[in-house]
């Protein structure tokens, strides 16, 4: 109509969009994505009294319990700092990962009521989850900064690297979530597989225990991209040597996952609805 610019032309063929066209389209939906994330955030805590506090309290409580239990009973110790700060850092990142991933995995299927009618790239439904969880992640980071001095760790300029770790975490979650979200449309076992995997995953990541507990096997943990993410955050918050190898591996894994996600979504975007 008159007020719009050149009218959009939609051409649908059994051929997927080119990578560039697909990415451009998704980028064009940025305002919609922001709106969806805000909506998601609003509805999640609607009707609750404490709202977003719940997003923060649960991981904090979990971290506290672990810190108390394992420092007293298992007598875990970490080099160069308090075990409590060690667990807290790991736990905050893990809780973002472990809450975002299942919701992202089921997002396309859960959003079928929206997706059935109006066109928008389906990946938006997935991206909404890690995006709306950013607020919780930011708050827990603020709490971490407040807690560090209390736990006997000095605040240093290295902390500026903390957002980098968070960024890596978010990108990893986005990449893996997008792949799993697409997979879940086709195979509804995916969410349960993930559920089971997460139970194991937390122990394959040095969240609760110090990595060197594994002795010469500790290097194997680097194959797990979360190890790099957590390592980078701990380096920023607690000091010690930078775990360059695991960080590099985490970055590489994230890049691969994102690339796979783009490929999967641009090929299947307009087929998902047939299976919902």
């Amino acid at each position: 109509m008159a007020d719009a610019g050149p009218a959009p032309v939609l051409v649908l063929e059994p051929r997927p969009a080119t990578r560039r066209a697909w990415l451009r389209e998704v980028a064009g939906y940025w305002p919609v994505l922001r709106m969806l994330a805000a909506k998601e955030f609003k509805t999640r805590y609607r009707g609750t009294t404490f709202g977003v506090v719940w997003a923060v309290v649960v991981p904090l409580l979990q971290a506290t319990v672990l810190a108390v239990v394992f420092s007293r009973i298992a007598r875990f110790e970490v080099a160069g700092g308090s075990y409590a700060a060690y667990v807290l850092t790991g736990m905050l990142l893990w809780s973002y990962f472990a809450t975002s991933l299942p919701a992202a995995t089921t997002a396309v299927v859960d959003g079928s009521n929206l997706a059935d009618k109006v066109w928008f790239p389906r990946v938006l439904l997935i991206l909404t989850v890690p995006l709306s969880n950013l607020i919780g992640l930011a708050v827990t980071h603020a709490i971490l900064l407040g807690a560090l001095p209390l736990l006997g760790t000095d605040l240093t300029p290295r902390l500026l690297a903390l957002p980098l770790a968070a960024l890596l975490l978010v990108l990893l979650t986005v990449g893996l979530g997008s792949v799993l979200g697409a997979m879940h449309v086709y195979f509804r076992d995916t969410r349960y597989l993930l559920q089971a995997a997460l139970l194991v995953w937390i122990y394959l990541t040095p969240i609760i225990y110090p990595a060197d507990l594994l002795g010469r096997w500790a290097g194997l943990l680097d194959a797990n991209p979360l190890t790099g993410v957590v390592g980078l955050a701990r380096w920023a918050a607690l000091g010690g040597p930078l775990p360059a190898r695991s960080v590099a591996l985490a970055g590489a894994a994230t890049a691969v996952l994102l690339a796979v996600a783009v490929e999967v979504h641009r090929r299947h975007d307009r087929r998902f609805v047939d299976l919902l």
Binding site: A7, V11, E13
Partner: peptide
């Protein structure tokens, strides 16, 4: 509406599409 792609052939829709498919569009 552009939600689903054809298995064969081509669908071309020119302009902004407002689908109103069943009650309470999402």
């Amino acid at each position: 509406a552009g939600v689903s792609e054809p298995t064969t052939g081509r669908v071309t829709v020119r302009g902004r599409v407002a689908p109103l498919i069943s009650v309470g569009v999402g």
